[in-house]
Amino acid sequence: MAKIDTLKEEARKLLQDGKVKYIIGYGAGSNGWPAAPLFIKQPEDVDKLIWDPTCIHNLVRFLVDEKRRKGKEKPPDKRPVGIFVKGCDSRAIVVLLQEKFIERGDVYILGISCEKAGVVDDAKLAKKLAGKKVITIEVDDENRFVLTTAGGKIEVPVEELLAERCLECRANFPVIYDVLSGEKTKRAVDKPFGSVEKIESLPVEERWAFWKEQIDKCIRCYACRSACPMCYCDECVVDSIQLAVSADTTADEKAGRIKWIQRSAAPSENMIYHLVRAIHLGGRCIDCGECERVCPLDIPLRLLNKKLEKEAKELFDYEVGFDPDLPALISSFRDDDPQDFIR
């Protein structure tokens, strides 16, 4: 398992030398597990940093906040922000670079490899614990999760508790970083789109029934959008008003803004919201699974994005988030792009 000690020292040095504004990492969660995002400004606080399989969050999402904050600073503090990333998270940085939302110099990337494991799925873990409280979770040399509880240790093969996305991950180490902890080892994946294929195999009526039931549950708390590093738009079609209003925005611009989606959490409106979000993430989603994890109603949102990831791969041989110099899928055209979809 990757060790965090070298990264802690790196973080300490960065802060001591004033090379970064602050560091975004993981700290202990308020009630044991999972971990929680931790923001560190002082070198003496780096000992609060942790790394374990409950470091689920994609911290790249906080770069969106940072960009907004920097926009308001006078004068802006242009130092980079230090950020801890797993493999999937690093691919989110790649997409933000491709889209020129951030520049490489905006971030100092402290990469951690998941090696042959990944992060745990809260629900699977809770089920395994059956009410017991977990004190620590580690990965041992035989690639098992070791759960330490007050009543002793529980050992489980990682596959049993891993988040679904980790089971389908094709690069469980950072693809871009300034320092890296851990080995660039890949876990064998038989079916990278296994979860989607299961749904795809259903008849259309059953698929519709499945999604209808799921989407009807939505309460439009927008946690999926809020947790997503790719949902960085200042203006989102689902907001009741236009948020990017300046002193120069005319009344007609505000009044003429089309209400694509009504505020009522009605099935039709929920469906449009989730479809719009899914389509906007086509060729951009790096499958960090945060949307699905944060959903209070357990809507399997990841499947929608995974489907589009699969389309991008099969139609355009495009894999998201590996090359910052590659043009983004949506904004590029190649002569040999398939055209069947136009017919």
Binding site: I241, A251, D252, K254, A255, G256, R257
Partner: peptide, 8 residues
């Protein structure tokens, strides 16, 4: 004249 309602 400022927003949706007042423009209307």
């Amino acid at each position: 004249r400022s927003g949706r309602v007042t423009a209307a």
